[in-house]
C-alpha cells in the first residue's frame, strides 16, 4: 500500500494532515501536502482513506 500526493494540483489545504497527522505534513516552504510515511502500517490506513476522501483537490492516492 503506497500513499502519494500529486503536488502539482495540491492546494495546501491541510485536510490530509487533519485526517492522518502521522502520515501527512505540510511543507514549511510552500504549505503543500507531503507524505511522511509512504507505506503506512495497517492501523494508520483508515486515516489515510479519510484523507483520500477529504482532499479537496483529489490528489491523495492509496495504491493497493
Amino acid at each position: 500500500m503506497t500513499v502519494r500526493i500529486d503536488q502539482t494540483r495540491c492546494i495546501g489545504s491541510g485536510q490530509c494532515v487533519l485526517a492522518a497527522p502521522d502520515v501527512f505534513d505540510q511543507s514549511d516552504d510552500d504549505g503543500l501536502g507531503v507524505v511522511l510515511v509512504a507505506e503506512p502500517p495497517a492501523d494508520l490506513l483508515p486515516g489515510v482513506r479519510d484523507a483520500v476522501d477529504r482532499c479537496p483537490a483529489q490528489v491523495v492516492t492509496l495504491e493497493e
Binding site: 492546494i11 495546501g12 491541510g14 487533519l18 505540510q26 510552500d30 504549505g31 503543500l32
Partner: peptide, 15 residues
C-alpha cells in the same frame, strides 16, 4: 487561481 492561492495556503497551514 493557483498563483494567488498557493502562497496564501502557507499562511493558513494547520501548524
Amino acid at each position: 487561481h493557483m498563483r494567488l492561492r498557493r502562497p496564501l495556503s502557507r499562511g493558513f497551514m494547520v501548524k
